[in-house]
Write a protein that binds this DNA or RNA. Structure first.
Length: 887
RNA sequence: GGGCGUUUAGCUCAGCUGGGAGAGCGCUACCCUUACAAGGUAGAUGUCGGGGGUUCGAUCCCCUCAACGCCCACCA
């Protein structure tokens, strides 16, 4: 049969991708539409940072979310997927500062706040647009009209509204408190932004003099000798017998010779170090607490850039590393350095700058999260919000059950400026959503706004609200806040469970009383094929757009979806994308095969009685895969959904159904031809519907042919399980048919028959239904295994001698080739099979002989095992007969 | 120091409530067979990390050891 076909042999993704994306946009397919579910389904895209280009993690975000949203849309939910971008305070400011320094050798202070912000906005416009462009290439079906940037008007209002209300409630407060100070950024950062890394340092033991007890010397161990200038006490444990008598006495700090009290504090660990702790309330978190408990003064010895100030005159102007060397030198000179040994210990580093963070006391804004975090924990405990996979709730809990005040102020320029105002005349301080013209108290016009900006995650925490218009009533109405809040599912990576998920839960629940989403699906982290994190320094990053260009968006999406289940790593090998590109192309070619028959095909299925056994089978299998896919997608098992449909398309549909159809489509029976064409079309429509959420472009392209261009696939209803299509009997029959056919091919291969060599096959089976079906299928066997002639008889019939042969549980297959085959080879092949079957048989037989098994195992299992034993026995009998025929 | 996770075919991984070890890629042989060589047919490969326990039965449950990875933690 020569097929006249204008369709190209390989699918060209490029043309289809741009074309269909444009059409979907024009058709407003991404906009929410009421469906048969009469329910909304909202997904919030984690807004990418405007720092640069998208990476594979974003592609995974996009793929899983788009798959979910297309699936739910087709299932009849009124879906809304909200895109957006994040200003990413520190990151973006740092990137732009670096760029300006490189190009103009100017820092932000040289430019001034206004000019510098102008530059960042220009950067944002450029990269924001590029991000959107990249997302479109991946096929994301989000509602672009909802697109929001964190510094837009409404999010600004949200931030101010929340801040002011928390300020007035007393939950946001300003305090001189010890914070993580990043000297590179010259800003405070939050606990969550500090990474602890193991650092090689030294343990210094210093000798202190004690006044009124000249015979006593205290030995103090420290890793940071340079901080002695800020010490305001020595602490010992109140129960420590070694030092009890010294409590209340005075010690003298070497170098600066300042006198400090020896105090008692529970915090001091008797076992650790020497049992004596130098207390530095200005530059250590624990010491700060000790200082508060004991009313100690605080001394700050650092400048904001990380150098030492005049409070440490001997090392003024030096950086900590140099200062340490200098202090070591001085201590040695004084003879008070008793010991110095190597010591590995964890040191906090800034997440963005990678600089050592210096604890420092400074005036910052804090949000008290204690009450909010309790509510956020409860929401998950009571099932109002569920993590998929469930294990991640532990991570979430561990963070929220140990709440600390969140330092929300940053000494940066790029971000939401803190809406707190000060009066120079009367020193009043107040928070306001509107920018005031005068002091709220004394009406003076000499007022100014707090120069700091808020932590980026402050606005991120309000994202589910602000993207739907909150708190602007007009915007909320327009964006249908009531209908779309709360979100259905949040999809994101585990690295931001603390930063983002926890904060959204706290803040969203605080404002509305309802958690911002019902499900949180945590996807894996994309790594390279060796499992290493993709990073610039390793140069192992894969650019999603490169992959789209090389293999097509569909192939990349399928690869990412196929790798997304409940795993925490996704090791991506570009070869896998190539493999799935081949799958996409396979589907295309299956369609090419069908396309000439589409004209003949009817749109409605004929009545059931006309269906061929093949038809019943392929529909039953389709039904099975439909159920699996629905179940898998409902549980965010994208990997299972993909493997189910992959298997169906490749094995069931292409390898068997299409191959079996050729005979009919080439045959003389016109009615059968129409029926088969109709069936092929029907199944193919279902296949592309099932696949569309993962593989949107190719399926839409094929749909345009299947539907005659009358409708869009994106708008179709998803396939649902149909109990009427179940047909276990037919599936069993086809499995036997496939076994026999494969058996014949197996024999052919074992005796090196060429595909062109026609054969005569003698089948022996006692399964009458199978015998009948095999007989009816004789023409198909010609196509499938080049069988020219054959017979089917009961097993008791006389069998050919010395033939190439094989047996399974139900059928013995003989290909008479006397004189053409190597008898020895055949005999050894049969013997090997006997051995294996014998072993299998003995395994199950021993179970049946085991009294305990027969007594304890459930009926179901016993029957199953008996069934197996019988089939192994049947196969053995047949194999032994065959072996005998060679004697 | 605390917590979590991983360990199954050469590679990447699946294996859902315990009941004859799977997929994809790769590999081998043969085939340009009339949708597809980005293809077809057939095939090889596993002490399911080690040890113990529960059970009629363990890749799956419990204990223990080991290796690797991640997160958290006050830098004495």
């Amino acid at each position: 049969m020569e097929i006249q076909n204008d369709l190209p042999k390989t699918f060209d993704p490029k043309a289809a991708e741009d074309k269909w994306y444009q059409i979907w946009l024009e058709n407003k397919s991404f906009k929410p539409k009421k469906g048969k579910q009469n329910r909304t389904f909202t997904v919030l895209m984690p807004p990418p940072n405007v720092t640069g280009k998208l990476h594979m993690g974003h592609a995974l975000d996009a793929t899983t979310q788009d798959t979910l949203i297309r699936y739910k849309r087709m299932k009849g939910f009124e879906t809304l997927w909200i895109p957006g971008t994040d200003h990413a305070g520190i990151s973006t400011q740092a990137v732009v500062e670096k760029l300006i320094w490189k190009q103009e050798k100017k820092n932000r202070h040289d430019l001034g706040r206004e000019e510098f912000l102008k530059r960042i906005w220009a950067w944002k416009e450029q990269y924001g647009a590029e991000i959107v462009n990249q997302q479109k290439k991946m096929g994301v079906s989000c509602d672009w009209d909802y697109s929001t940037f964190t510094l837009d008007d409404v999010p600004n209002k949200a931030v101010k509204k929340f801040f002011v209300s928390m300020y007035n409630e007393g939950l946001i407060f300003q305090s001189d408190y010890i914070v993580n100070w990043d000297p590179a950024l010259q800003s405070a950062i939050s606990d969550a932004e500090v990474e602890h890394k193991e650092v090689k340092g030294h343990f210094y033991s210093l000798r202190y003099k004690v006044l009124d007890a000249p015979e006593t010397e205290l030995i103090i161990a420290t890793t940071r000798p340079e901080t002695i200038f800020a010490d305001t006490a020595i602490a010992v444990n109140p129960t420590d017998p070694r030092f009890k008598h010294l409590i209340g006495k005075t010690a003298v700090i070497p170098i600066c010779n300042r006198e400090i009290p020896i105090i008692a504090d529970e915090h001091v660990d008797i076992e650790k170090g020497t049992g004596c702790l130098k207390v530095t309330p200005g530059h250590d978190f624990n010491d700060f607490e000790i200082g508060k408990r004991n009313g100690l003064p605080i001394i700050n010895i650092l400048n904001t850039n990380g150098t030492f100030n005049k409070n440490a005159p001997e090392i003024e102007g030096l950086r900590p590393k140099e200062a340490r060397a200098k202090v070591e030198e001085l201590l040695t000179e004084l003879g008070v350095l008793v010991e110095k040994k190597d010591h590995v210990h964890p040191v906090g580093h800034g997440e963005r700058s990678d600089e050592i963070v210096e604890p420092m006391v400074s005036k910052q804004w804090f949000l008290s999260t204690k009450a909010m975090s309790e509510v956020a924990v409860e929401a998950v405990e009571q099932g109002e919000m569920t993590f998929y996979p469930k294990g991640w709730e532990n991570t979430y809990f561990s963070w929220l059950r140990n709440p600390k005040n969140w330092c929300i102020s940053r000494q940066l320029w790029w971000g939401h400026q803190i809406p707190v105002f000060y009066c120079r005349s009367c020193e009043a301080q107040w928070a306001s959503e509107e920018t005031p013209a005068e002091c709220a108290k004394c009406k003076s016009e000499d007022i100014f706004q707090d120069p700091d900006v808020l932590d980026t995650w402050f606005s991120s925490g309000l994202w589910p609200l602000s993207t739907l218009g909150w708190p602007d009533e007009t915007a909320m109405k327009e964006k249908r806040f009531e209908d779309f809040y709360p979100n259905a599912t949040l999809i994101t990576g585990f690295d931001i469970i603390f930063f983002w998920v926890a904060r959204m839960m706290m803040m969203g629940t605080k404002v509305t009383g309802t958690p911002p989403f019902k499900d949180v699906y945590i996807h894996a982290l994309v790594r390279d094929k060796q499992g290493r994190k993709m990073s610039k320094s390793l140069g192992n990053g894969i650019d999603p757009l490169d992959m789209v260009g090389q293999y097509g968006a569909d192939a990349m999406r399928f690869t990412l979806a196929a790798g997304s289940g409940y795993n925490r790593d996704l090791n991506l090998d570009p070869e896998r994308i190539e493999g799935y590109r081949n799958f996409v192309n396979k589907l295309w070619n299956a369609f090419r095969f069908i396309s000439p028959y589409l004209e003949k095909a009817k749109d409605e299925l004929p009545i059931h009685s006309e269906w061929h056994l093949h038809d019943k089978w392929i529909l039953a299998e389709l039904n099975t895969v439909t159920r699996s896919m629905n179940e898998a997608l409902d549980l965010y098992r994208f990997d299972e959904a993909c493997s189910e449909i992959y298997q169906y398309v490749y094995e069931k549909f292409c390898a068997w159904y299409i191959e079996l159809s050729k005979n009919i489509l080439n045959g003389p029976d016109e009615r059968a031809k129409v029926l088969r064409a109709t069936m092929l079309k029907f199944c193919f429509r279902k296949i592309v519907i099932l696949l569309h959420p993962v593989v949107p472009f190719l399926t839409e392209e094929i749909w345009s042919h299947l539907s005659g261009g009358k409708s869009l696939l994106i708008d179709q209803e998803y396939v649902e399980f149909d109990p009427q299509l179940e047909n276990l009997e037919v599936q069993t029959m086809m499995n036997k048919f496939i076994e026999v056919t494969t058996g014949i091919r197996n024999i052919r291969s074992s005796v090196n028959l060429k595909p062109k060599d026609e054969i005569d096959v003698k089948l022996f089976t006692d399964d009458k239904k199978l015998a009948k079906f095999m007989y009816e299928s004789r023409h198909f066997l010609k196509d499938l295994a080049n069988v020219k002639s054959g017979t089917i008889k009961p097993k008791s019939s006389e069998k050919p001698r010395r033939s190439a042969s094989l047996a399974n549980a139900h059928t013995e297959i003989f290909i008479p080739l006397e004189g053409l085959i190597d008898i020895g080879e055949q005999v050894s092949r049969i013997r090997k099979d006997i051995e294996k079957t014998q072993a299998d048989y003995q395994k199950v037989e021993s179970k049946l002989e085991n009294e305990n098994f027969m007594r304890n195992a459930p009926e179901e299992i016993r029957t199953e095992v008996k069934e197996k034993a019988r089939s192994f026995q049947d196969k053995l009998t047949s194999l032994n007969d065959i072996l005998a025929s060679f004697q």
